[in-house]
């Protein structure tokens, strides 16, 4: 059974999480400096989140279809994304076990990890606030 009850719940959690990342001056600045266009493709339940820092000015968060080609695409089950943000699964393990797919230049994808790591601290609160008791840990 998935941590997220449906695609809407996944969408609300991820957009809230990234919304907080966007308002964090340090993380936001570093992401904008990268000028990356990153897409997260989730399944079970399905979801597509694009994080667009390409103009270096504003971090844009787009849920759903996005026509521009991303520089990096990460695909995984929504549960794996949850485990990642909870700090319970490491990227090397997820990659070696085939649970994460990374498309595009891997060094650029890896460079993002230390940038977004501070969000691990507030992700559990985001899940609790958005998905409430419905979210299965």
């Amino acid at each position: 059974m998935s941590v997220f009850g449906n695609s809407d719940e996944l969408k609300n959690v991820m957009l809230t999480l990234w919304g907080r990342i966007k308002t964090d001056a340090d993380m936001s600045e570093k992401l904008l400096r990268s000028r990356l266009l990153v897409q997260f493709r989730y399944r079970d339940p399905e979801g597509l989140l694009t994080v667009d820092a390409s103009d270096g000015v504003e971090l844009k968060l787009i849920w759903g279809r996005f026509d521009q080609k991303p520089v990096i695409e990460m695909a995984m089950k929504a549960d794996i994304a949850h485990e990642f943000w909870m700090g319970r699964i490491s990227v090397p393990v997820a990659i070696l076990t085939g649970k994460m797919v990374s498309k595009g230049p891997t060094p650029k994808a890896l460079a993002l990890l230390p940038v977004i790591r501070p969000a691990f601290d507030f992700y559990p609160d985001v899940v609790h606030e958005v998905a409430g008791e419905g979210a299965r840990k």
Partner: peptide, 8 residues
Amino acid sequence: LDYQGLNN
């Protein structure tokens, strides 16, 4: 280039 990456 569409195939670079991991598990891709």
